[in-house]
Simulated scan of single mutants.
Amino acid sequence: MSIKSKNKKNKIIFISFIAVVILFLISINLGSIKVELKDLIKGLLLNTDDPKVSIIRDIRIPRVLAAIIIGANLAVSGVLLQAIIRNPLAEPSIVGISSGASLVSVIILLFFPTLNTIRPLFGFLGGLVSCILVCGLAFKKGLSPVRIVLAGVAVNAMLTAITNITVQFGAGTVSSVQSWLTGSLANITWIDIKLLLIYSIIGHIGAFILYKSCDLIVLGEKNAKSLGLNYDLHISLICIVAVFLSATATSIGGVIAFVGLVVPHICRIIMGSGHKYLIPFSVTMGGILLLLADTLGRTVFIPLEIPVGIVMAVIGGPVFLYLLRRSEV
């Protein structure tokens, strides 16, 4: 890759990061309550008791940050899954990871609320078990990309049904959990943001460390091994990081589909297939997409609010069908 091409890609990533910052500043002041930017900054710095500033500080800013972080996690998870499965339709919700994470998270929310602070770790275990189950069901003289997607759809349906049955035993907390299952970010708190940041930083560092392995794996097993890659080990590591990112995001934000499907394809068109640039660009683009979706959901029909999971389903469903029509697997 030429220096000119590298500089161009670095500029695109930098511009996308600036776009995230600008959208953040716009989004926190969109809604039924608005504050002048200078008054908002002054109120935040001085920690005033102004009710409008308090609402933006304690409700809207955590929500906007959660949209950015969760979008980034799901997008990078989609990039990693598509690399190791070598299927453009691979995505956390489609291959069953999100449903496994959501099932375990619902059990924690309903029956073990004292474990809420480590819910992301339990969500990760649930997503990992679900991923192993999908791979086990799809295995037949090797792993076929199309069988993985089909097995993922089946496992996703089964686990979603079990989750819905579990919710019915939750009695008084059913409504809040049902809202969470639709991918609502309405109840995000600063505690959730702290948890998300910790797990997300770990996951994104792991993803970037493995970018060279992703580049080799997309060449196919034989080619990757001929280039000296420990194929099975790196497939496992990348899979664990992908599950970790998506499952921990799901455990906080609920089930939000199609981010990991839509964003990698947009990023490849702009950035190419090299994961050194594809991964960081997916971080910013995932954040932008989910932030836009959540902002639309909470502002278009004020005072009504559409959960971001539903907005993404409206956006991602047609994209998935389009990719399915084009897919040769």
Results as ranks from 00 to 15, higher is better:
8 K>V: 12
14 F>K: 11
15 I>G: 09
19 A>R: 07
20 V>C: 14
20 V>A: 06
21 V>Q: 04
25 L>T: 14
30 L>W: 04
32 S>D: 12
34 K>W: 02
49 D>T: 12
50 D>T: 04
54 S>L: 13
54 S>E: 13
57 R>M: 12
59 I>Y: 08
63 R>T: 11
64 V>N: 03
65 L>E: 07
72 A>E: 04
75 A>T: 05
75 A>S: 15
77 S>G: 10
79 V>W: 02
82 Q>G: 07
98 S>N: 15
101 A>W: 02
108 I>Q: 00
114 T>K: 15
114 T>P: 00
115 L>T: 10
117 T>P: 01
124 F>Y: 10
126 G>C: 11
134 V>L: 09
136 G>L: 13
138 A>W: 00
140 K>P: 06
144 S>N: 13
146 V>G: 02
148 I>P: 02
153 V>C: 09
159 L>F: 12
168 Q>N: 13
173 T>W: 05
176 S>F: 07
187 N>P: 08
188 I>C: 05
188 I>T: 12
189 T>Q: 12
198 I>N: 02
200 S>K: 01
201 I>F: 11
208 F>P: 03
215 D>A: 06
216 L>R: 03
223 N>C: 08
225 K>A: 11
227 L>R: 15
228 G>H: 10
244 F>G: 01
251 S>G: 07
255 V>H: 01
270 I>H: 02
277 Y>A: 05
279 I>W: 02
280 P>Y: 07
283 V>G: 01
287 G>V: 07
290 L>S: 04
295 T>E: 06
298 R>F: 08
301 F>R: 09
307 P>L: 13
315 I>P: 05
